[in-house]
Structures are given as structure tokens and as C-alpha cells.
């Protein structure tokens, strides 16, 4: 069976990692653009949030799809990491310089685990609102109907200093993961050639920085009192 051969090969698994990584990166960019609407004010952000939640079918389809993509990315990473460790062997080098390899490229498994842990915290914090159940009671009256006040929730959440600091450190790690991951996606999917290589590396680095600035801007702005109720 060709598909089984594909799923058994290191190259096939890396192609899946590239495809899923690219999808997760695309989601991160959309997420960031959504977040930045907080700077347009309460009305804009809450409208956006209401629009996203307009249809249960759409949002749950999206959530399940995204969850499956993330699960596939993690599953391939686990399988490949086990195989890579076995390939390296029991006897390690007394001296190993890792020539040419960036720190991010050598620690993708570690940064990946931290990013996954952060995402779980983030979902419990703002999506399920388990960490602070009082978020559920934040509502506003819009055009005669009651709706969830996301703007107030974000400000309340990030007014806690340690939470904001934790988010800023976490998004720094997300962008550290992306600083290698974005360019690596292109390579694993086979979309790199000598003409595009440098452009893809700059694109990856640029977006890692953009993601950090865009994501950290929200907790930083709340902490600094630039965005308030």
C-alpha cells in the first residue's frame, strides 16, 4: 500500500510535519490579526468575537480540524524524535559542535513541548475559561441582546502581571519555534530550491518577529495601561 509506505518513511512523515506546520502557522497569523483588533476598541473586538461564534457548526468544524492538524503535527514529531534518537545511537560524541545549526533548529522538540503546554493553558484560560470562571459572567448589551464581552475578559485576564509576563515569554517561545519552523516547512514540503531558499529563510525570520510583536502587544498594552475599560 503506497499510503502505508508514505506514513512509514521519514520523508513522508516530514512532509506531513511541513504541511501541518504550515497550517498551524497560517492559523497563528489569523489569530494575531484577530487579537490586534483590541486596539480598534471594545465594539470592534466584540463584533469580531461574535462573528466567529455565529455558527456552532462552523466554529466546531474549525476547532476539530485545527485540533486534528495539531495532533498530527505532534504525533509525527513524537514518532520522528524516537527514530532520530535511535539513529544517533547509544555512544555519543565526547565533543559535538553542531556546526551550522541554529539553536532553534536543534531544540524544536523542546520548544514544541513548551508551546503545546502553553496552548493548553491558553485554552483553559480564554476558551474554556476554567482557570478563572468569572470570565463567563463578563457580558455586555449590544443592540438589545446580551453577548460575551471579550474585550473586558482580555483586559481582566492580562491585568494580572504574572499572567501577562507568562504570555509574553510563551509567545517568545512560539516565535523561537517558528524562527526555524517556517523555513523548515518549505524545505520539508519540497518547495525550496536554490533560487527561493534565501527568501524563504528571511520570510520565516521576519514572520517569527512579526508574530512575537503582534502577539505580545496585547498583554503588554494591557499591562502598560494603554488598553483599558
Amino acid at each position: 500500500m503506497p499510503l502505508i509506505k508514505f506514513l512509514r518513511s521519514t520523508v513522508g512523515l516530514k512532509i506531513i510535519m511541513g504541511l501541518t506546520g504550515a497550517a498551524l502557522f497560517a492559523f497563528t497569523v489569523i489569530h494575531m490579526v484577530g487579537n490586534l483588533q483590541i486596539f480598534l476598541g471594545q465594539e470592534a473586538l466584540n463584533n469580531y468575537a461574535q462573528m466567529l461564534h455565529a455558527s456552532d457548526e462552523v466554529i466546531w468544524g474549525f476547532r476539530l480540524g485545527l485540533g486534528a492538524v495539531a495532533a498530527l503535527h505532534i504525533l509525527c514529531a513524537v514518532v520522528l524524535t524516537i527514530r532520530n534518537r535511535a539513529a544517533r545511537g547509544k555512544e555519543s560524541y565526547a565533543e559535538y559542535a553542531a556546526p551550522g545549526a541554529s539553536l532553534a533548529s536543534r531544540t524544536m522538540a523542546v520548544s514544541g513541548v513548551i508551546v503545546a503546554a502553553f496552548i493548553i493553558f491558553h485554552l483553559l484560560h480564554f476558551t474554556t475559561q476554567t482557570i478563572d470562571p468569572s470570565f463567563k459572567e463578563l457580558t455586555e448589551i449590544h443592540k438589545g441582546a446580551e453577548r460575551h464581552d471579550v474585550y473586558a475578559m482580555v483586559i481582566k485576564g492580562f491585568s494580572v502581571t504574572w499572567v501577562s509576563v507568562f504570555y509574553i515569554i510563551s509567545v517568545a517561545l512560539v516565535s523561537f519555534h517558528l524562527s526555524h519552523g517556517i523555513a523548515s516547512c518549505f524545505r520539508s514540503m519540497g518547495l525550496t530550491n536554490p533560487a527561493y531558499r534565501e527568501v524563504q529563510e528571511w520570510f520565516g525570520l521576519a514572520f517569527a518577529i512579526i508574530i512575537f510583536v503582534g502577539m505580545a502587544a496585547v498583554p503588554a498594552a494591557v499591562l502598560l495601561g494603554l488598553v483599558k475599560l
Binding site: 532520530n84 539513529a87 553542531a98 556546526p99 551550522g100 545549526a101 533548529s105 524545505r187 518547495l191 531558499r197
Partner: peptide
């Protein structure tokens, strides 16, 4: 093992073979 695109191979290759060939192989494999 699998390629995680660290570029170490390219850095030590005595013939300076670039990693873009790996992308080419991934493409040909797909």
C-alpha cells in the same frame, strides 16, 4: 534518522553540497 533542516550536513560537507538537494528529494518523493 529524519531531516530537521538544521544545515549541519551542509556546513561539514567537504564538497559544499547544499541542502536544497534535500528539498528536491522531498519534492521528488512526494
Amino acid at each position: 534518522g529524519a531531516c530537521t533542516n538544521t544545515n549541519s550536513c551542509e556546513a561539514v560537507c567537504p564538497k559544499g553540497i547544499p541542502v536544497t538537494f534535500i528539498a528536491q528529494l522531498n519534492r521528488d518523493y512526494a
